[in-house]
Simulated scan of single mutants.
Amino acid sequence: MNNSIRQISPVDMAPPGGHYSHATIANGLVFVSGQLPITPSGERLHQASFEAQTRQTLANAQSALEAAGSSVAQLVQVRVYITNIDNWPVFNQLYMAWAGQSMPARAVVPVPELHHGFALEVEAVAATK
C-alpha cells in the first residue's frame, strides 16, 4: 500500500456497509465517501423525516472529516444526491446552518432513488489541517 494514502474508520460511526472506507487521505486532501443517514449504532433512518435524515447524514460527514484531521471549515467540494428536489429548500437551510462560514464548491444531483430508500447521500472533499 502507498504510504501517502490512509484509510479512515471513525470509531463514532457504524462500520461501512461495503468494501470502502468512510474517508481516505491522499496528497493533503480528505475524500469522504458517500454518507447516508445511518446512526453510529447502525440504525438506518430511511423512515425518518427528511430533516432527520439530513442532520444524520451531515453529522456522519463531519465525523469522517474530523477523524481524518479535517473539519467542515476545510471543505473544498460537496456533492449531494437527493431523491426529491422539492426537499431542496429544507436541505439548503440545514446545510447552511451546518456549514457555517464554509462555502465549498457544491453540486446537488437529483436522483430517482438511493440505497435502502434513503432520501439523500452526501460526499465531500476537504483539505487536511
Rank of each mutant, 00 (worst) to 15 (best):
H19K: 02
S33G: 01
P15Q: 12
L45V: 03
A64F: 05
Q53C: 14
I5Q: 09
W98D: 01
E113Q: 08
R6D: 14
P89A: 04
M13E: 07
E43M: 15
M103Q: 13
A105I: 07
V111W: 03
Q74C: 15
M103F: 06
E123R: 12
S21W: 07
Y20M: 05
V78D: 03
A119G: 12
V32E: 02
V80H: 00
A64P: 04
T54I: 09
L94G: 08
S9V: 09
Q47S: 10
A67G: 10
A23D: 07
L120R: 07
R55S: 14
L114C: 11
H22W: 15
P112M: 01
V32Q: 05
A73W: 13
P89C: 07
N2C: 08
S33I: 01
V72R: 11
F91M: 04
Y20P: 03
R44H: 12
A99W: 07
S63T: 14
A68L: 04
F118H: 15
Q56K: 11
T83P: 01
I5S: 07
V122I: 15
H46C: 02
Q47T: 12
S63Q: 06
L94Q: 06
D12A: 05
S71L: 05
D86C: 00
Y20H: 13
Q53P: 11
E66R: 14
N2S: 10
W88H: 00
T128A: 08
H22L: 00
G100R: 13
H115W: 09
G42I: 13
V90E: 09
E123F: 02
G34D: 14
